[in-house]
Design a protein around this nucleic acid. Structure first.
Length: 496
RNA sequence: GUCCCCAUCGUCUAGUGGCCAAGGACCCUGGCCUUUCACGCCAGUAACGCGGGUUCAAAUCCCGCUGGGGACGCCA
């Protein structure tokens, strides 16, 4: 760890207070989820406080529905917050648009301290200055030099709208020890008099963020490294207010497979989409945790292991690319870690979506899960794979044409006849009897298996034949084999 | 263009100066298992961007180059 925090007072190490501060603009991006996750893991590992704060100062894009989506996403992931919307806390409100008076007070304080000033320049003036700057063709980046920085007289018209700007130092260097990037130095000469407050009193990101982190007593700020540019101005703000500067941890971003910024064009980016695709929260967390962080060669982690093993110095410094196949693999591993009863319970809503109404305790469902689990990755796969246990089969056209043909009809009938007499109806005995029957009649398993499978399941892929029979039960097994035989004998007819 | 960050198989990564003719995972390929599909098992392809240093020794440290990403807003 490269941090310098608390070095002077080891006995008085402050409580760990971290926050996740998304802006509610549609959905919770999986990149954001990773930021939230690392912060949450850090808080839980240190028995600290995890704060959820909504940064909705962009009125154009923020909506109330989006806030609900954020909360729902966090809840689904199990990233519970100790302070924030709906749970309260001692440092609220936790929605920025409700904290305007706080920002106003701090802005006034900064003006009085001489660290900020009212700027009456219009957007047009700034745009002009920018164009003029571009015409000069200098290599320096554009920095607006407000004429109001050093002016003491207010404008003639007292009603002129103004923004409040920070009076940024123009010399020196601002540095910090980043938990993942190490030491960073920024020349103050590259900074400008950034805006704190808009005319309507809405704070801009750097100001709202600092005032909130300050008043909420946040000890570590974790965010994507696209925010690194904001850190120097923020540190300057803390200093101007004579406030303690938190530790910063800037993690590399999650990129698209082609290296671009990850967006809807490349993948499902809203985390709730994964819920709907049948992913498990712990799998999402595992995949995201491992994208940019590592613990030796370990790939699969439970939530508890993540809490125990996470550390900032194991967060890599390279941007990670989203890999759908690896994600799916991690998901499959987590599915297999679940008990059958758990899988059954989680599959129920996905069955409901298919119009199948069963309870989690349904004995057929419970019996089928262990056979289906190894060949499924998501809960949608599970639902799909148990479908035919709960409804009549209509063989897929292709499968029917290939396997339910006249030549197979007789064997299906004879198989049904045989099976009808087997008791108890378990897979072991079924396999034994069917195999000896095949032997006695000089038949190959292959000649009977696929027609029987199609008859029972309607498809060519399924768990083992005897497993399917056992789950289906004698009555349905026999009935479907006979129906299949009829279809085979008279290929032009459809199922009854 | 300016500023900041980054650089090991296609991808995620292990590697913190000798144990590395670079290990694991996903993907891909071949094989085994087999009543189908999976699972599982075995095997294989595949990487230290380039150039200079430092050192007895460099994937690991330093410098430069190149390449990639991000930021340059009255967005966050």
């Amino acid at each position: 760890m490269t941090a310098e925090r608390g070095a002077g007072s080891p006995s008085a190490m402050p409580e760990v207070r971290v926050r996740f501060a998304p802006s509610p603009t549609g959905y919770l991006h999986i990149g954001g989820v990773r930021t939230a996750l690392y912060s949450w893991l850090w808080a839980r590992q240190h028995e600290g406080t995890f704060i959820l704060r909504i940064e909705d100062t962009d009125r154009e894009r923020s909506t109330a529905e989006s806030i609900q989506i954020v909360l729902e996403s966090m809840r689904w992931l199990g990233l519970d917050w100790d302070e924030g919307p709906e749970v309260g806390g001692d440092h609220g409100p936790y929605v920025q648009s409700e904290r305007l008076d706080i920002y106003a007070a701090y802005a006034e304080k900064l003006i009085q301290l001489g660290h900020a000033y009212r700027c009456y320049a219009t957007k047009e003036e700034i745009a002009e200055a920018r164009e003029a700057h571009q015409r000069t063709g200098t290599k320096e980046g554009f920095r607006f030099q407000s004429p109001w920085r050093d002016r003491t007289e207010p404008p003639a018209d007292a009603a002129t709208p103004y923004v409040i700007r920070f009076r940024a130092p123009q010399e020196g260097t601002t540095s910090w020890n980043d938990e993942v990037k190490g030491r960073i130095d920024i020349l103050n000469s590259t900074l400008q008099d950034f805006i704190l407050l808009r005319p309507d009193g809405m704070p801009l990101y750097n100001f709202g963020c600092v005032i909130d982190d300050l008043t909420m007593q946040v000890t570590l700020v974790a965010r994507g490294d696209d925010h690194m540019i904001n850190t120097a101005p923020q540190i300057l703000l803390y200093r101007a207010l004579d406030a303690p500067v938190p530790t910063f941890a800037h993690m590399p971003m999650v990129l698209a497979p082609n290296g671009e910024k990850l967006s809807k064009r490349h993948a499902a980016v809203g985390v709730l989409e994964y819920r709907d695709m049948g992913y498990l929260p712990d799998a999402v967390l595992n995949y995201l945790a491992r994208l940019g962080w590592s613990h030796g060669d370990q790939e699969i982690f439970t939530r508890q292991e993540l809490i125990e093993k996470f550390s900032w110095d194991r967060v890599g410094s390279t941007a990670g690319r989203y890999d759908a196949k690896k994600f799916l693999h991690v998901q499959a591993e987590h599915l297999r870690m679940l008990s059958d009863a758990d899988v059954a319970g989680r599959t129920v809503p996905f069955l409901a979506k298919r119009g199948i109404d069963v309870r989690a305790e349904d004995p057929v469902l419970l019996k089928a899960i262990p056979y289906v689990k190894p060949r499924a990755a998501t809960l949608v796969d599970v639902a799909e794979a148990v479908d035919y246990f709960f409804r009549d089969v209509e063989p897929e056209e292709k499968a029917r044409r290939k396997f339910l043909v006249p030549g197979n009809a007789d064997n299906l009938v004879r198989l049904a006849d045989l099976i009808e007499k087997i008791e108890p109806f378990d897979k072991k005995l079924l396999e034994e009897r069917v195999k000896s029957w095949l032997e006695d009649n000089d038949l190959a398993m292959k000649s009977v298996a696929q027609p029987a499978r199609v008859a029972m399941t309607g498809r060519t892929q399924s768990p083992g034949l005897f497993e399917v029979m056992e789950v289906l039960g004698k009555e349905k097994t026999v009935q479907r084999l006979r129906a299949g035989a009829r279809l085979a004998a008279y290929p032009e007819q459809t199922t009854a």
